[in-house]
């Protein structure tokens, strides 16, 4: 998929460049873009290291664990058919907290474990259970509160106030998550009738 996307972007770019007589610009872009990507990564390393450093403190002092526990009632509401003390509740909670805190790379392993357990609960069926659908919809509705990457990019491209979009970002994220949750709850009711 990405192979075709990437390949065609370059092939089409060069073709259009030749047709429109912009081929010198295309050459310059080929030289400048990778350079720019590296400059961007250097800015991002600073901001990302700042964030993972702070999050490591949150993990060590028990804050992340405390947040995960507090998610319990919300998970019970979203997944009414999962037995109360099942391990999958913990996986789902850790995955969601990691996503909320912007630790995407830490969220995926937990999410995969959650999916495997959900499959066992669904008698190893190849058809997704309502719980799986809910889990993925809420996950993909975007949970991340602080978009660390976006702040880094904005700063690299000379924003006067890279963090000014945080408040609006949080509200937009809430909107999409509420829409995902509502849809999941309704779809579960409809499909069980």
């Amino acid at each position: 998929m990405i192979n075709y996307l990437w390949g065609f972007m370059i092939v089409i770019g060069i073709t259009v460049g030749v047709l429109k007589g912009n081929i010198a610009d295309v050459t310059n872009a080929a030289i400048d873009s990778p350079k720019e990507a590296v400059a961007l990564c250097i800015t991002m390393m600073g901001i990302m290291a700042m964030w993972t450093g702070i999050m490591q403190i949150a993990k060590k002092c028990g804050l992340v664990e405390a947040f995960t526990k507090r998610l319990g009632p919300f998970i019970a509401f979203l997944f009414p058919s999962i037995p109360k003390n099942h391990i999958v509740n913990e996986y789902i909670a850790s995955n969601m907290i990691a996503n909320i805190l912007g630790l995407g790379w830490a969220a995926t392993p937990m999410g995969l474990m959650a999916m495997k357990e959900l499959k066992k609960l669904n008698h190893d069926s190849e058809v997704a259970s309502c719980d799986m659908c809910t889990f993925l919809i809420v996950n993909i509705s975007s949970l991340q509160l602080i978009p660390v990457n976006i702040i880094a990019y904005r700063s690299q491209y000379g924003s006067a106030n890279p963090a000014e979009i945080l408040g609006a970002g949080i509200i937009a994220t809430l909107c999409s998550t509420v829409a995902g949750v509502l849809f999941s709850v309704i779809a579960r009711k409809v499909s069980s009738h």
Partner: peptide, 28 residues
């Protein structure tokens, strides 16, 4: 994300997941 999670769990029929994701995304 759907591909990663569903392939890992060996699920082929994803039912209303995609519709829900699209609704959430467009709301956002």
């Amino acid at each position: 994300t759907m591909a990663v999670y569903f392939v890992a769990a060996g699920v082929k029929k994803t039912r209303y997941t995609l519709l829900g994701c699209l609704i959430a995304t467009f709301t956002g």
